[in-house]
Design a binder for these strands. Structure first.
Length: 508
RNA sequence: GCCAGAGUAGCUCAGUGGUAGAGCAGAGGACUCAUAAGCCUUUGGUCGGCGGUUCAAAUCCGCCCUCUGGCACCA
């Protein structure tokens, strides 16, 4: 059995509506997933939501609902986000499902049996208003910040997971392995581990927090939400059953930089180590979108809401922008001005318009479908040479998560097709009766068509919806993999293309 | 404070030793199949600052400045 390429997003915390950050992580992961499918991997793509914990409880309470009612409302929003953005996830897990809670409980029991979980007294300062412990270091001039309200010193018993026991192991693991991409993020982890890590408090007394998974060995406590949430990565793929080995170890956990340390780079590897499960192969850590405040969205009339943008410009346009503009791992700005600039320049004017030109010209001048390319002059040669270079580049760039550069190269190629069209100017040749001119006209349309096909196929991971539409107009099936797809050829010969179409209408 | 990332044309960025680049925006032009799109030409930068190494530095070294993020639980 061939092991699947297993990739996950972080599961989103179910106490609010999906926003751009959620959308980005899904899109990024989806681009990787679709890319791997195109290279022939069998992919398993997992996403979901994290439902337990205090903040969900608080949010629910504030809305006069039970936690279950809240998460049952929120879950469909995230499922809908995936649908809206053409996310190709194979599974969507909710941490309230029994397939998850059962595994969490069995792991807790396992760790308890092994002696890696122990009970101890915890003494600390507790904010009644915020319903959380606050740290001594948060004190400003000996006073607690206003937002905490009354802070009282309390003592309670809790269960702890022996993180510290595994610190040395983790440090040496990170010294010997490239675990985090981009690599500079791994240094942040190493930095964090220079200080001794405390054992992790993994329980909350039921009287203080009831919305969670009960500890199997002490029903008076629920499981701390991070400990619960991380386990989704294995509970969703049958941890403890036969099929687990088809998925695990995970190839990439795609996460935001904010949850790298300590959750994914410290808690999670140690949890896995403690229960004897191999670590995931890599963490793919992305940056954040800065959205520049509300005034930008107000002035343009479209707010930076993934659903609204998707509705106004199409999911592919949003996916394109998020992938084109973000250097994976860095932060980036999202403004409507930048978005519109990309949309107009790259999608509407460059790509969309080229497709429209091709469809119009071939509909008008090719009564028997696309003719053969019989002329082989310098312009044809240059286009093909550029394609050969482009295909090499983009495969390498996709592989290295350099999606923004890959798209840049693809669009440079599209620009070259527009230039080629000007050089051959088939609309001028159409006015001639000379058979030589006719041959050049037919050739030029064959070259543009093949170029459009190649560029479109290359962009499938990023814009699957548009790719399907364009290939459909070229009377071409969407290929399941890239096998043989990047070879310049004449497969479109004889086809009668669809009616001219505006792929990316220019806004208002 | 510590760690990291970033400081290059109006904007977004590429460029790790050899005469400053791209895209977008701006300006001009020829064309017209096309979403007034495309194509050609073009304005524009003392490469954050100071010093050093070198025949030669945006690129290496040192010091400094600014912005952003992380430093125990918010994509």
């Amino acid at each position: 059995m061939k092991k699947k390429f297993f990739i996950t997003t972080a599961i989103d915390y179910a106490n609010g509506r999906p926003h751009l950050g959620h959308a980005y992580e899904k899109v990024l992961t989806d681009v990787v997933a679709r890319y791997r499918r195109m290279t022939g991997d069998e992919v398993h793509f997992l996403t979901g939501i994290d439902e337990h914990g205090q903040k969900v409880t608080q949010t629910a309470k504030a809305q006069g609902k039970s936690p279950e009612e809240l998460t049952n409302e929120v879950a469909p929003l995230f499922v809908d986000l995936c649908k809206t953005l053409l996310i190709s996830n194979d599974d969507f897990i909710r941490t309230s499902e029994t397939r998850h809670t059962d595994v969490v409980r069995s792991i807790l029991q396992d760790l308890h049996d092994r002696g890696d979980i122990y009970k101890a007294r915890y003494n600390g300062y507790y904010s009644v208003r915020q319903e959380q412990f606050v740290l001594e270091k948060e004190r400003v001039n000996g006073e607690w910040p206003e937002i905490y309200g009354e802070v009282v010193e309390i003592e309670e018993e809790n269960y702890f997971f022996r993180l510290g026991k595994y610190q040395d192991w983790l440090v040496s693991f990170l010294r010997e392995n490239e675990f985090v991409f981009p690599l500079f993020r791994q240094k942040q982890v190493t930095e964090f581990l220079k200080e001794p890590v405390n054992d992790l408090c993994i329980s909350r007394p039921v009287e203080r927090l009831s919305w969670g998974i009960r500890l199997p060995f002490d029903e008076d406590f629920v499981t701390y939400v991070w400990f619960d949430a991380l386990i989704n990565y294995i509970s969703a793929v049958g941890y403890g059953t036969e099929r687990f080995g088809e998925y695990w170890p995970c190839d990439y956990h795609v996460i935001g930089k904010d949850i790298l340390v300590p959750a994914h780079a410290v808690y999670w590897p140690i949890m896995l180590k403690a229960i004897g499960v191999p670590l995931p192969k890599s963490l793919l850590v992305h940056g954040w979108w800065h959205t520049g405040g509300a005034k930008l969205s107000k002035s343009s009339g479209v707010s930076i809401d993934p659903f609204e943008i998707s509705k106004a410009f199409g999911p592919d346009a949003l996916r394109f922008f998020l992938t084109r503009e973000m250097n994976v791992g860095q932060d980036s700005d999202f403004t409507m001005e930048l978005f519109l600039s990309r949309y107009n320049a790259d999608l509407a004017n460059n790509y969309g318009n080229l497709v429209n030109r091709l469809l119009n010209l071939s509909g008008r001048h090719l009564k028997d479908g696309l003719a053969a390319a019989t002329v082989d002059g310098d312009p044809e040669h240059e286009v093909r040479a550029l394609w050969e270079k482009t295909r090499e580049d983009i495969l390498r760039l996709y592989e290295g998560f350099q999606f923004h550069t890959a798209l840049e190269r693809i669009f440079q190629f599209i620009t070259a097709l527009n230039r080629y069209a000007e050089i051959r100017a088939p609309w001028k040749l159409a006015k001639s009766d000379n058979p030589d001119d006719r041959a050049v006209l037919e050739t030029s349309l064959a070259v543009i068509a093949e170029g459009v096909r190649l560029a479109t196929v290359a962009v499938i991971p990023v814009m699957p919806g548009v790719a399907e539409r364009v290939l459909g107009l070229l009377r071409e099936e969407v290929p399941p993999t890239w096998e043989g797809q990047f070879d310049w050829g004449n497969r479109l010969e004889g086809r009668t293309f669809g009616e001219r179409a505006i792929l990316f209408p220019r806004p208002g």
